[in-house]
Design a protein around this nucleic acid. Structure first.
Lengths: 193, 193
DNA sequence: CAAAGGCGTTGATAAATATCAACGCTTTTT
DNA sequence: AAAAAGCGTTGATATTTATCAACGCCTTTG
């Protein structure tokens, strides 16, 4: 199970992990299984772990006063799930994270992760890269959300993230794009003509 | 002029900069003045520098097919301006960054910054902190943009960033919030009652 | 196997927001 | 000092998107 993580890390660093490093990582990351719908993080709790998704899919969302869910992130294999703000600040999270499909994770606390980074410089390198990509992706999404119509946002998303379109139902995608499921349904019908 | 930068860095690290570190920083960061409306970065160019704003204000925006500007970021003193994606990937930027008021910057290339980080560990610490805050802020903004009505977004923004409300005209704020200036005008009138 | 729930679609209608045009008031430029 | 440009506002109207209700088709569950 940790093999996927090693492979992921090696894909993102310049020279492969030593076997000592792998051993350290293996003992620091704890396997965790979630059944569909189970919470990884529930609103109001402090987010203790960040999780690397080995298999399955998850979603992160807020719930508004009317009970409507707003998807903030979608995750599949090789994504990291967690609420950074809560983990860092130790404040209660405003987000829920749960499993959309049965999911296998490797989880680690922030403190343990920081320790690990001290011991394995390559990990620091990976984290930096991850952060950068994340920042870039968020930047793009923000820019798209502000500037584009619902239709254009969907097109862009479908082009850039076909995996998500396949893995999540349409009403989840709609929420992620900031529109209702009905609107997305109509947009798609339009776009086909 | 570099004093502001030292103060900023010291505010974000655990033990103050040594005078050697200050000397290194001073020689690496180049002062730059921009008059109102002057470009720091123009769409289509690779973003060579990141700039620390000592005095003044700037904006980062895209321009769509219709010629409409969409504000992606607003910057004032003690903010860092630049397009990370372009700097890292060395790809042409899709953004424009220009001075809104006459502005004084301290600029540095990415390569020089990386060198500097090697030499001054405290800088690495600061950058990590900066990145974290940035990520959190972006996350919040994204979440707000997806979930909230224009009115609520404005309220939230006004509460959390009164400085921006004071420094930038309303049509810029509107664009930043992803709405038109007319809609913002009407929202504000409503809100007063 | 029957029932229930999840999902996508459609129609009718309402609400939010954009667009276009015009105006008054400042500030900046010439 | 006059002209131009920038800014915020308002009104009339158009467009986009949300809401509410209903239906058919699956898939899951008891």
């Amino acid at each position: 199970m940790h093999k996927n993580l090693f492979a992921y890390i090696n894909r993102h660093i310049s020279s492969p992990l030593t076997s000592e490093a792998e051993a350290l990582i293996e003992s620091a990351f704890q396997p965790k299984k979630l059944r569909k719908k189970q919470y990884f993080l529930q609103e109001g709790n402090v987010c203790k772990y960040v999780g690397f998704i080995v298999k399955g899919s998850m979603r992160q969302y807020t719930v508004d006063e009317k009970g409507v869910e707003h998807m903030v992130h979608l995750y599949i294999e090789n994504y990291w799930a967690g609420d950074r703000e809560s983990s860092i600040m130790l404040t209660p999270s405003v987000y829920n994270i749960d499993a959309w499909e049965d999911t296998e994770l490797l989880i680690i606390t922030r403190a343990e992760m920081l320790e690990l980074i001290e011991k394995i410089p390559a990990l620091a390198e990976m984290i930096r890269l991850m952060d950068e990509r994340n920042a870039i992706a968020n930047q793009r999404r923000l820019s798209s959300t502000i500037s584009n119509s619902a239709e254009k946002r969907y097109e862009e998303f479908a082009d850039n993230h076909p995996q998500f379109i396949q893995r999540f139902p349409q009403h989840i995608i709609a929420s992620y794009l900031g529109i209702t499921k009905e609107t997305l349904s109509r947009i798609k019908k339009q776009g086909m003509k």
